[in-house]
Design a protein around this nucleic acid. Structure first.
Length: 463
RNA sequence: GGCCCCUUCGUCUAGCGGUAAGGAUCCCAGGUUUUCAUCCUGGUUACAGGAGUUCGAGUCUCCUAGGGGUCACCA
């Protein structure tokens, strides 16, 4: 069975890049009817926050991803790690190092001064003398001192790193708490991980973890290192580049399906296909199609995807979502008409909400330029006459075509072009010259409101 | 700096020794639309550079350049 995981450290919100690796892992597990597990990497007791964990779960929930079983907290497994440390110590595969921090710093300084790479010199590797007083020793793993550590990366191919690049790194601190690379290896092995999909920045941790796997006799999982997401300038993504918190995208009016679709195409592809439902992603995803190179993101495409998903979303669902953006239209009797008339114009839920508000409320202000253009010549007279025609209309007025008939008659009777009444009417109704179709707008707000908005304009412009 | 990884239109990407180097987005033009948007049609733009292997290279090898990652008692 395929088992994957997402292993965040709870130090902040869920990053957009983190969501992508989580998505890849999740998809791969789902595709193979396997399991996707969540592990919280909180071994650094001083940096954890419960709020951060909640933020991660909230983001997962928003995009519709969920993990199997219970989340595993590394901070609750210290006893377990201790056992493995003891085991390694007894087997002579790890040892206590009594070097003080000061000594280590001094060593590094000397090495740097000589132009060497700072690394532990192994001075306690085979130590059997009397330990110095007053030092709480750290535990170091005995890493191989020669040869290469070779592993097959599912994305990058074969990776070969000289053993000399990996020194006897610390697996337990002076206070006895285990360190990152050690617990990752233990937990991935114990949790039965078959496929580890993670960021490229972990590539150099892999040989270290392999040292642990081998010392403990664990079987290696498949590793996949996904290249980073950069900003448009090709630099590391930072807060200055805009939204990096997944939940920011919700606030900005993006749909989770659009975000996932955008993310899945960042570094992964399936031929020329651009649009993927979650079901399709699950069916089609395969890490062998993950791109080797890093990608930079560009919001244009996300915006296009978002517009696509908004356009194709059932109105009822849209109405529910819109509530979070200050638009309450669920009970509106012209709901279908209202959303049909607006959803092709709003690329985000925020923009859509603004469109809807524009129709539902009489204009708070009128665009100066459009006003000048539209309210000239006979415009005011036409508007007044049109309002009159609407009020005196004897046939029912509910649907757009019924309103269209009024407009038609008006144009014919006055012998004018559509623009003569259309432009002033649009500005009167919306406050600007762009927007949804007039027939639709009138059908949505009704005769009374239409006349009200016309009169408001007449009053303003006859002063 | 050492080590590792990467390099096709501005951006996301297809390509898996023989293609007029394809798609998407963006941008531009035209059409549809009373406006705007949608939609449709068309267009501009790319194999980082240099050697080599080969009848033939975006695809394989090497070098150069550029970019990224990593070198903790952080994760």
């Amino acid at each position: 069975m395929t088992i994957t995981r997402f292993a965040p450290s709870p130090t902040g919100y869920l990053h957009i890049g983190g969501l992508r690796t989580a998505l890849f892992s999740w998809l791969w597990a789902k595709k193979n009817s396997g399991k996707f597990l969540l592990r919280i990497e909180d071994t650094d007791l001083s940096r954890n926050s419960e709020a951060a964990l909640q933020a991660i779960l909230e983001a997962f929930d928003w995009v519709g991803m969920s993990y199997d079983g219970e989340a595993i907290y590394q901070s609750k497994r210290f006893d377990l790690y201790k056992e493995y440390i003891e085991q390694l110590l007894e087997a002579g595969k790890a040892y206590k190092c009594y070097m003080s921090k000061e000594e280590l710093d001094k060593l590094r300084e000397e090495q740097m001064a000589r132009g060497e790479r700072p690394r532990y010199d192994g001075r306690y590797r085979d130590f059997d003398g009397t330990p110095p007083e007053g030092i709480e020793p750290v535990i170091r793993i005995k890493a191989p001192q020669e040869g290469n550590i070779i592993f097959k990366d599912g994305v990058k191919g074969e990776i070969c790193i000289a053993a000399t690049e990996v020194d006897d790194f610390v697996i337990a601190r002076g206070d006895g708490t285990p360190t990152y690379n050690f617990v990752v290896a233990i937990d991935d092995a114990l949790m039965g991980m078959t496929d580890v999909i993670r960021g490229d920045d972990h590539l150099y941790n892999t040989p270290k973890q392999i040292v642990i796997y081998e010392a403990l006799g664990f079987a290696l999982p498949n590793f996949y290192h996904v290249a980073m997401i950069n900003n448009e300038q090709g630099k590391k993504l930072s807060k200055r580049d805009g939204a990096t918190d997944v939940m920011d995208y919700k606030r900005l009016g993006y749909l989770p399906e659009a975000l996932l679709n955008f993310l899945v195409r960042l570094g992964w592809s399936h031929g020329d296909q651009e649009i993927f439902s979650v079901e399709e992603m699950i069916r089609l995803f395969d890490p062998k199609n993950i791109n080797k190179s890093s990608s930079s993101y560009n919001l244009d495409k996300l915006l296009w995807l978002n517009a696509h998903y908004i356009k194709n979303m059932p109105n009822k669902k849209l109405a529910t979502l819109l509530k979070a953006y200050g638009v309450e239209v669920e009970g509106h009797d012209k709901l279908e008409l209202l959303l049909d008339a607006t959803k092709e114009r709003g690329k985000t839920l925020v923009a859509l909400a603004a469109q809807i508000n524009l129709i539902l409320n009489d204009p708070a202000e009128y665009e100066e330029k459009d006003t000048k253009k539209a309210f000239k010549g006979e415009a005011m007279n036409y508007l007044a006459d049109f309002a009159e025609m609407l009020v005196g209309w004897e046939k029912p007025l509910h649907t757009p075509p019924e309103y269209h008939e009024v407009l038609d008659r008006f144009v014919n009777e006055n012998g004018i072009g559509f623009g003569k009444i259309g432009q002033p009417l649009r500005v009167a109704l919306l406050g600007s010259m762009t927007g949804s179709g007039l027939d639709e707008i009138m059908a949505i707000i009704g005769v009374e409101e239409t006349v009200h908005r016309i009169n408001k304009v007449l009053k303003l412009h006859t002063l």
